[in-house]
Design a binder for these strands. Sequence first.
DNA 1: CAAATGTATTAGAATGATTCTAAAGTGAAT
DNA 2: ATTCACTTTAGAATCATTCTAATACATTTG
Lengths: 142, 142
Amino acid sequence: MRLNEKTKALMANKLSAAGLRVTQARLALAHLLFGQGDRHVTADALREEALAAGLKISQATVYNTLNQFHAAGLLRQVQVDQARSYFDTNIDTHHHFYVEDEARLIDIAAQEVDVTRLPDSPKGYDVDRVEVIIRLDKSPKA
Amino acid sequence: MRLNEKTKALMANKLSAAGLRVTQARLALAHLLFGQGDRHVTADALREEALAAGLKISQATVYNTLNQFHAAGLLRQVQVDQARSYFDTNIDTHHHFYVEDEARLIDIAAQEVDVTRLPDSPKGYDVDRVEVIIRLDKSPKA
DNA sequence: CAAATGTATTAGAATGATTCTAAAGTGAAT
DNA sequence: ATTCACTTTAGAATCATTCTAATACATTTG
Ligand SMILES: [Mn+2]
Ligand SMILES: [Mn+2]
Ligand SMILES: [Zn+2]
Ligand SMILES: [Zn+2]
């Protein structure tokens, strides 16, 4: 069993476990998304990666798949930029730096941030998630 | 001097202080934006408010004005929803609850949240702003 | 105050990300 | 192999936002 096949098996498993049918498009995109370390991708960036890898996948499928993976809990959606959505392969609780100039997200492990006090939620609402976003500027030249 | 005129004078002052020319459209929108307490508005919501108030203001002007006010530091832009931008009339440091189901932002005063530890910024970058967003769900029925 | 000048405003077109449609393809079950 | 539900797709549609280039307005100048 080649390495590639091994990864495919892992991905197939991941999809099944998430209640998603194992299809070629999903396998291929899962491979791109989850085969490397944690990543933050836009739909378009993933599309280009897929094309560069010689995959024949439509834009609609990229969007469908990202949305399905998100709905299935395999991806988290991060909203920091007015223009695009980012999909985050790291679904554990964590936070982000966002470099506006470069439209780039950087993970911050949960234990790197201490939020030691939060207000009570309004009556009738529960906390779904606490996000800390640290927006970064380039340092001025010395 | 009527109350309306008094507010207008204040708004004119605010615009001038921000280096913006005092024009009818800007005065009218500033009046809607800053005449009441702190608010979070979308471009479209402001447009509708303007129309309901009998103002004759184009969509382009609403967008132009919001962007100019933002650039001038009179508004803060809040990015919590994939679909739309929110403009926040509260430019002091503060945080937000976001009720996804209702697409509604609620202010959290800075002193209601304690962020007691943050990671160092990557080399070459400085912190522009730390945002805490608490996403809320409706509580399940008892 | 009237003309001149630089901004502002506007209708409508353009853009770009995302979603939708409805037709053809594929996976799983029989 | 046949069926049936689900998936993929090209292209159209949608929607927020931006752009264009023409007209209106605010401010300065004479
Ligand atoms: Mn939830
Ligand atoms: Mn800055
Ligand atoms: Zn992340
Ligand atoms: Zn606010």
